[in-house]
């Protein structure tokens, strides 16, 4: 029992037959071949699978691909343009906002959401915004610095 879905991912339209029970994260990684969004906990706690769905950051382990029929999805692979990193990616690089890098795709997609809604967040707002993303390496300080730097870069 499969159904056809049409989704736009990073500007490219895809059409696939999917089982209703296929989670978006499995669809992105195994069907479309985009392995940037990571599977960390698979229980909607860690945020490593975060992608943007119609402009909103969501956890792709907790939504079925079939719910996204007709939707626009942005993954970490769609952030850099013309061979140039996105300002948020630059900021994570410059501020050492990662160590092992496993959580980074999710951190960056959530950072985009935070800055889309608030161009100049306080440290407290940044930490509240990153509530749903876990990093087991950095202790978060450098990630908060990176978000702040990205906000500055976007304002500049």
């Amino acid at each position: 029992m499969t159904e056809t879905i049409n989704v736009s991912i990073n500007g490219t339209t895809y059409s696939h037959e999917v089982e209703p029970r296929l989670l978006l994260i499995h669809y992105l990684r195994e069907v479309v071949g985009l392995t940037g969004p990571h599977i960390g906990c698979e229980t909607s706690l860690c945020g490593a699978c975060t992608v943007e769905l119609n402009g909103k950051a969501i956890k792709s382990c907790s939504i079925f691909a079939i719910q996204c029929d007709g939707a626009k999805i942005l993954t970490i692979e769609g952030m850099a343009a013309d061979g140039k990193l996105h300002k948020i990616q630059e900021a994570f690089w410059n501020e050492h906002g990662l160590q092992c890098g496993f959580c980074t795709p999710g951190m960056i997609m959530t950072t985009k959401q935070i800055l889309d809604r608030n161009r100049n967040p306080t440290d407290q707002e940044i930490r509240h915004g990153l509530d749903g993303n876990l990093c087991r390496c950095t202790g978060y300080q450098h990630i908060v610095n990176a978000v702040r730097a990205a906000a500055r870069a976007a304002g500049a």
Partner: peptide, 9 residues
């Protein structure tokens, strides 16, 4: 409630 991603959905 929850976190940003959960509140979005």
């Amino acid at each position: 409630i929850g976190d940003v991603q959960v509140r979005n959905m």
